[in-house]
Design a protein around this nucleic acid. Structure first.
Lengths: 229, 229
DNA sequence: CGAAGTATTGACTACCTTCAAAAATTGTGG
DNA sequence: CCACAATTTTTGAAGGTAGTCAATACTTCG
């Protein structure tokens, strides 16, 4: 799963040492900041002064329509970058879903590093291209998948993403609320809940709590992610 | 509207002289190629050897699910760049919707220019960020808008994009087929057709031919793009 | 002119939403 | 720590939007 707005960089393996790069080329030391659950990192329209690297926790990036309908664009996990903009402003809201620790970079420092280090810039560009590619996958999700396929795909994405970092390869946290999942997948909270219930009753997953998932039949779940049946 | 896969750059005003940049830094002259309507520029999975700048015509970038469901990612218009990838392969199909003339760059030439010219690279990055932002707008479309809002938004986007280049500011071409529009908006061809008919019967648009739109009530159309009513 | 492809229209269906209420969880003050 | 309020999640019933299946009209092209 890709993550945040407008560009994020979470390719674990190829990850760049951003702190070092930014510091080296700007002389401006970055610093660390924390946001409690539910706190806002930035709003759409705010001056895009900072770029953030998520160190711990989970953020939600979203946009709203005038009438209040919301689309969650992505969930940001440790390693993801958020807040990069093509102009002076942020183009989405960003809030902490779970308590978040971020490294904060001044946009200037970032730009400086970019201008003076082609390798850094090239890295960012590759990462942006990868982000675009991930977003395109999500287009398929939003445009062409059924509720069941969406939920199954979403769970598989979280499973794969978090499995590397855990002891139990088939359990993971679901830190966001049902409303967040619904707004990410283009569904309602009721449909999210009902679909999870179906998966539970089929014995494919367990929900020890509303925010914890244990996958009993990963293969069945993967099948559902591709075709509803 | 943003355009193509994986990254495109169509910000008319800020557009870079790509041909000059690539030539200058690589010494490799670019050349021009044409594709007839319906011809494939590249397939998903192909080796991403070339990057294309659209000079004339319209392309369609799309991805398929295994069962044949398709999502059109974007339509590419003159000025757009297509084929930039974060790795060695293209990640979508790209076909000519209308006869297309493209300028072809070797990927190497492009990379060379990027590495040696920070300004060029920074430009590409800004453009990629803008692309990401545009894609996020499309998330709202796919995830949260009704059929009427999708169609109205789509028509408004085409209207605004093409109005600068035409004499009649309220007419424009709809070169893609109904199936392309459907797969772009996450609808069926029947719903696209029916929705256009509703707009026609309301006197908001005229369809002199299936591929030509004349907007009679632009303001009403803009209203429908934001709320169905 | 006929054939193939594309677009429109119609009837019916289904999936998801909406509205509503109950159950479960979380948070807070006494 | 408990009681109560607020929030979140689940479940139920009914309805609507868009999808599916099918037939007809229109266009394009040989």
């Amino acid at each position: 799963m890709y993550v945040t707005s407008p560009v994020q960089f979470h390719n674990g393996a190829t990850r760049f040492d951003l702190a070092a790069a930014a510091d080296e080329f700007s002389g401006t030391a970055s610093h660390v900041h924390t946001f409690g659950a539910g706190k806002t990192v930035f709003h759409e329209g705010d001056n895009a002064e900072f770029i953030y690297e998520i160190l711990e926790g989970v953020v939600r990036s979203s946009k709203m329509l005038v009438d209040g309908r919301r689309q969650v664009l992505s969930f940001g996990y440790p390693g993801d970058m958020i807040g990069l903009s093509h102009d002076e402003f942020y183009h989405s809201d960003c809030d902490a879903v779970a308590p978040v620790k971020v490294r904060v970079f001044r946009k200037n420092a970032f730009s400086g590093a970019m201008e003076s280090d082609p390798a850094f810039c090239a890295h960012l560009l590759r990462t942006a291209a990868a982000e675009v590619n991930s977003m395109q996958e999500h287009f398929l999700m939003l445009g062409r998948k059924s509720a069941m396929e969406k939920i199954a795909s979403f769970l598989i994405t979280l499973l794969d993403r978090q499995s590397a970092e855990r002891e139990d390869a088939n359990s993971f946290a679901l830190p966001m609320k049902r409303a967040d999942i619904a707004d990410f997948l283009g569904l309602t909270i009721e449909t999210v809940s009902r679909t999870l219930t179906v998966l539970r009753k089929k014995g494919i997953i367990e929900l020890p709590t509303a925010q914890k998932v244990h996958v009993l039949k990963p293969l069945a779940l993967r099948d559902l992610a591709e075709s509803d049946l």
